[in-house]
């Protein structure tokens, strides 16, 4: 299945920072929102990874940085050997054809005034596929790939005439139509009905495997991750706090934050009603003014005074190929 996950690195982020300037009264500089604050990882060609975290952990900003929608403040993104931050306008355009984007809200992601045929042709027109016949053929192929068949019956439909699941398939088809080598899916199913979610995740996963794509899948929902990704990055406060292969991480979570997250997720079980979850108190940190040291220490049940609140923990490797940024593993 995973033909060459051990092989080539497709995308690498080194010490990546994406900060947004905060302004007061429109012009005074009032510091930065550190949405992505020192992130390192490497994605291999053909693997599916998940970035997991709560809202405000910086995972969507990371996705947008990888898509070239935000300029990184510091650090670098290397994609197929080229540096993203060094690309000129043309280079960026070419890069964008190589990376597909699937968004959270399928209805919002589709221009409501275009029909499906037009929506799927747009990327092709932009990237200079002039011949109408070629475009039509590629649009049809993309629709078939996302199982919207017969393709002809969907071409002239408008987004509002489709169900949520169908809309998300169109979004996926649009991400595929330029034949990218990587797809970034930002919460692709969180706005969909429970019964459709599995369908869409499976579709994405199947396409990823068939095409040998790299899939970066951003989610807040750890329970869906096991079957649809191979590796997990857990993010908190703009950083990656834990990363490992999916079963390893879910079965042996190391970081106290990951442990709390997993403990808070219920499986449908009538016994749930009788027990309360151990929920860490407090709120996720403000990215404009993050706590010093480990960002989780104010909420951490095992925080060590004088260490966790002072020094940033480096990545430890408490188990083989399993990184966790926590002083507990010291």
């Amino acid at each position: 299945m995973n033909r060459d996950t051990t092989a080539e690195t497709l995308l690498e982020a080194r010490d990546l920072h994406t900060w947004f300037e905060l302004r007061q009264w429109g012009f005074l500089r009032a510091g930065h929102v550190r949405a992505v604050d020192g992130v390192n990882f490497a994605l291999r060609r053909g693997e599916a990874v998940a970035f997991v975290g709560e809202s405000g952990c910086g995972k969507s900003s990371l996705a947008r940085t990888l898509l070239g929608l935000h300029r990184p403040t510091r650090g670098e993104v290397v994609f197929e050997g080229g540096h993203l931050e060094a690309l000129d306008k043309r280079g960026l355009k070419t890069y964008r054809a190589r990376v597909g984007y699937v968004q959270q809200d399928p209805y919002g992601a589709l221009p409501p005034f275009m029909d499906v045929g037009r929506i799927l042709s747009e990327p092709l027109i932009i990237h200079g596929v002039r011949d109408r016949e070629t475009r039509q053929a590629r649009v049809r192929a993309a629709l078939e790939e996302v199982r919207l068949t017969p393709a002809e019956s969907y071409l002239s439909k408008f987004p509002h005439q489709l169900s949520g699941g169908q809309q998300q398939r169109v979004v996926i088809a649009r991400a595929l139509v330029l034949e990218p080598s990587m797809i970034i899916a930002d919460e692709p199913v969180s706005m969909l009905d429970a019964s459709v979610r599995v369908e869409i995740l499976r579709l994405l996963r199947n396409i990823q495997v068939e095409r040998g794509l790299t899939l970066a899948f951003i989610t807040h929902d750890l329970s869906t991750v096991r079957h649809f990704a191979e590796r997990i990055f857990v993010m908190y406060g703009g950083r990656i706090v834990e990363q490992a292969e999916v079963n390893e991480l879910l079965d042996h979570p190391q970081h106290p934050y990951t442990q709390a997250l997993l403990a808070a997720i219920p499986d449908p079980d009538p016994d749930n009603a009788d027990r309360e979850h151990a929920v860490p108190g407090g709120e996720p940190p403000s990215l404009a003014n993050p706590p010093p040291g480990c960002r989780f220490h104010p909420r951490c049940p095992e925080a060590m005074a004088g260490l966790c609140d002072r020094d940033e923990p480096p990545d430890f490797e408490p188990r083989p190929v399993h990184l966790s940024a926590c002083w507990l593993h010291r």
């Binding site: 964008r96 054809a97 968004q103 221009p111 409501p112 747009e122 990327p123 932009i126």
Partner: peptide, 28 residues
């Protein structure tokens, strides 16, 4: 709107986004 972000992500230029993605949305 997400669809504008999507258009940018698949490489649409400024003029195209303004004329083909923003203006038609308010035409009705």
């Amino acid at each position: 709107a997400p669809y504008i972000e999507a258009a940018k992500a698949y490489g649409a230029g400024d003029a195209r986004i303004i004329l083909r993605y923003m203006v038609p949305r308010v035409l009705p």
